[in-house]
Design a protein around this nucleic acid. Structure first.
Length: 619
DNA sequence: CGGTTTTGACCAGCGC
DNA sequence: GCGCTGGTCAAAACCG
């Protein structure tokens, strides 16, 4: 349409620009005003000359040879001028002809392009219909390309096939329109479609998060449902008694496809708060790790099969390893929803990685939406994933039954520096021939000293007050206390250094994932009763939402050497004893302004439901 | 009183 | 087949 308009424009332009030329073609002698003036001047000169001659003839019979010579010279001059004017007119006429020809050529080109455009549009629309009706079997190469793309898209694992076909068709058609309709390089097209598909997927995910489920999802969890369509199952545990009857029979043909998303984060509390409600149903001391592994089950719905395992890293006990498995079959609170998409993307990459080199599907349970803002770029040539400007790393385990993708939010400065060339690390993956060889790392790049907590979907910052409730906590607290220097802990109560604030601010502004995390957290605040939150930053008092925002922004913009304690500490304070022996951290050091019960979906009864997390997202 | 946590016991998969 | 390990169950205890 724009092309038509663009091509349609020259017409009047030519007219307006060259009106004199057109007149020239009609009348040779009546040209431009300048030529008319010339002719008039010539006539005047003639008349004047004649009169002058007559007068001289009258007055002086002797006449004058000089006057005749003047007349001759004048005539010659006039003739010369006339010829030059005619020649000039001829040139103008020729130019006019050329312009006419060029205009006609432009019009022809315009018509040709218009017809080509219409033809492409019609062909693509027809193709769309064919795809929608699933009658594309008889179509050969072109359709075969579509099928290939579809397979790639299937690895996304999130959309129903028909929807994917539509997307692919749309993308292809749009590409054709842009390019001009020819048969493009298939490989390039596939790549393009792949990247576009990923983008579209993420857009959709974001829209699903922001605009709470719409349309076709009766249970408001279409993405979960589609995940199951993609082959991901809900925790068909190998040893479980109760789950077996429910799930194992559902997907017996594809047992290995049980993606897990493991989130490694620095967290001083027992569990990482992801916004969901969890019920602890077991605890086990795993081999090689003094810290017990806790088993949690989602209590958001009686039928929800999502579970998670929480265990501290044996090497670094400040790192909390949370492994999610399964899909929620119930609405999630905004904060949990915010968390969910992150591991969805990661798990999708994991699952897709086992089949193709591309992409993202959804999996997951309750991970963070934070990562959702990450851009996962698939490179067809190499099975590497890049997370530009993202500070997370994904590692995968090669468990035969549980392909696990790890979102490492902890990476130490040393590891991050060795790991990545960029500030925020990178995501890498490899696809050896193992069954679930996907390997990657989402490295949020952080130092131990900078601790942010994720409370009910909110980032928060806290310090001190370490409850000693469980064995794990005891072990961990001992560890923490060993790590902690009382003098530095006192220093921690000082306002953050400007440079650290600047660095954190820079990190935030530079990192899209972090921004998305903040956006998700803000969304969770605003979307759950924190309507005043948006205005809270400008206000100075009251309003939990604005407090949350303040907390959030303070946390985000503040790096603090020391540690963090989430709101779980606040919870635990009331029920557990806090360590007062070695910490030396005054109670005033707590920088969390938001009571847990003010946060969405918090459960005062469940310590596991909303313990503060201390995800170190900063460097 | 209802929900959660704790904890010992049970079960199944896997390796030897 | 046996032992090891991970995962889960379920009763008791705990908590608000």
């Amino acid at each position: 349409m724009e092309a038509a308009a663009a091509f349609g424009r020259p017409r009047p332009v030519v007219k307006t620009e060259k009106p004199p030329v057109r007149d020239v073609s009609h009348d040779d002698d009546r040209d431009s005003p300048s030529k008319q003036q010339q002719q008039q001047q010539h006539l005047l000169v003639k008349r004047a000359g004649n009169n002058h001659a007559k007068q001289e003839h009258d007055t002086e019979d002797k006449t004058s040879c000089s006057s005749d010579q003047k007349d001759l010279s004048c005539i010659k001059l006039q003739e010369d001028q006339l010829e030059s004017a005619r020649a000039e007119m001829g040139e103008v006429r020729e130019e006019n002809q050329r312009l006419k020809q060029s205009l006609n050529q432009i019009m022809k080109d315009y018509e040709a392009l218009k017809m080509q455009f219409l033809g492409i549009v019609g062909r693509d629309s027809k193709k769309l219909q064919d795809d929608d009706n699933d009658v594309n079997k008889e179509q050969q190469q072109q359709q075969h390309d579509d099928d290939q793309i579809e397979l790639v898209s299937l690895s996304l694992g999130r959309f129903p096939v028909s929807e994917k076909i539509k997307k692919v068709a749309d993308e292809k058609s749009s590409m054709n329109i842009i390019i001009g309709g020819g048969d493009q390089d298939e490989e390039a097209a596939c790549k393009e479609a792949l990247s576009l598909g990923l983008n579209c997927k993420f857009e959709r995910e974001e829209s699903m998060v922001a605009v709470v489920k719409e349309v076709d999802s009766p249970n408001s969890f279409d993405h979960e449902a589609t995940k199951e369509e993609a082959g991901e199952t809900n925790w068909p545990s190998k040893g479980g008694k109760t789950m077996r009857s429910v799930e194992d029979d559902v997907t017996p043909q594809n047992p290995p496809k049980r993606a897990r998303v493991c989130v490694r984060a620095r967290c001083e509390t027992a569990t990482m708060n992801d916004g969901c409600q969890w019920r602890k149903y077991g605890q086990k001391i795993a081999k090689g790790n003094p810290c017990p592994r806790a088993y949690y089950r989602c209590t958001g719905s009686p039928t929800c099969l999502v579970r998670k395992q929480v265990q501290r890293c044996a090497d670094d006990m400040s790192i909390l390893i949370t492994t999610y498995e399964g899909n929620h079959n119930h609405p999630l609170p905004a904060s949990a929803n915010a968390m969910a998409s992150t591991t969805s993307a990661a798990a999708s990459m994991l699952l897709s990685g086992s089949t193709t080199s591309a992409t993202t599907a959804a999996s997951s349970s309750t991970a963070s939406n934070t990562l959702h803002g990450l851009n996962f770029y698939a490179n067809n040539s190499k099975p590497n994933f890049y997370l530009p400007n993202n500070s997370s790393s994904i590692i995968s385990s090669t468990s035969p039954t549980h392909p696990t993708i790890t979102l490492d939010l902890t990476s130490n400065p040393s590891s991050s520096s060795s790991n990545s060339s960029t500030h925020f690390g990178k995501f890498t993956s490899n696809f050896p021939n193992s069954r679930y060889p996907f390997t990657g790392q989402l490295d949020f790049g952080s130092s131990r000293n900078n601790v942010l907590s994720w409370n009910n979907g909110l980032l928060s910052y806290n310090r001190n007050n370490h409850p000693t409730t469980t064995t794990a906590n005891n072990i961990y607290q001992n560890y923490i206390q060993q790590q902690r220097n009382p003098t530095t802990s006192l220093q921690h109560q000082q306002p953050p250094l400007p440079d650290t604030i600047a660095a954190a601010t820079k990190a935030i502004t530079a990192d899209p994932s972090f921004q998305s995390a903040l956006a998700a957290a803000l969304t969770s605040i605003i979307g759950t009763g924190g309507a005043s939150a948006s205005a809270g930053l400008t206000k100075s008092s009251s309003g939990r939402g604005e407090q949350s925002l303040f907390q959030l922004m303070t946390t985000a913009a503040t790096t603090n050497k020391g540690n963090g304690c989430g709101t779980s500490f606040l919870n635990n304070i009331t029920t557990t004893t806090t360590t007062t022996t070695t910490s030396n951290s005054p109670p005033t050091g707590n920088m969390v302004f938001v009571p847990t019960n003010s946060l969405p979906f918090s459960n005062s009864k469940s310590a596991s439901a909303s313990p503060g997390d201390h995800i170190d997202l900063t460097n």
